[in-house]
Amino acid sequence: MEIVHILFLAFAALAVVAAFNVILQRNPIYSAIGLIVVLCSLAVLFLTLYAPFIAAMQVIVYAGAIMVLFVFVIMLLNIREEESKTDRQKYLKFLAAPLFLALLGMIAAVVKTVGNPAPRGTDQLGSVQTLAEGMFTKYVLPFEATSVLILMAIVGSMLLARREKAEDVERIEQALAASQEGAEATEKEEVAA
């Protein structure tokens, strides 16, 4: 038992509890907080895997940016607890339990086969230098591809989330009315005939 084991167990337990918190809470804001806790404890686990850079990125990108966005949206839309009126998805709940067990069984199998190999990586594996070298040599094409992805995400989210400008609304209404009017006009003609 070393300190790293204690660290692992503590943060693994924290992560699991918080993950349950994510899925079992009714109030989205509690779920979000649960997820933030999971993310931060995973960051600590990354540290125990000698991946400090990834750990820092985990907190900066996930906890610092993505989850802020979530919390922001929850507050912006003021989503509170929602009582469900319909129960159409109830069968999914019954599906969930056996699925959970099946996946747990699978996990047991995996864990059993993997066993306890010695780590082959040096402690320098997760250093900024190593990662940067990989990023700008072998991974240069995927790296460039992510820029397309992000540009597209900016365009897409701006497109979907901005409010309709008055002129936009006008144009859409005109276009819809045009197709309706056409239909009505012919109807009248037929009645007249």
Binding site: V148, L151, V155, L159, R171, I172, A175, L176
Partner: peptide
């Protein structure tokens, strides 16, 4: 016909 914002659609198709 739908009076939708015209430009971005092509950008999206290209991406």
């Amino acid at each position: 016909d739908e009076g939708l914002p015209p430009g971005e659609f092509f950008t999206l198709i290209m991406f």
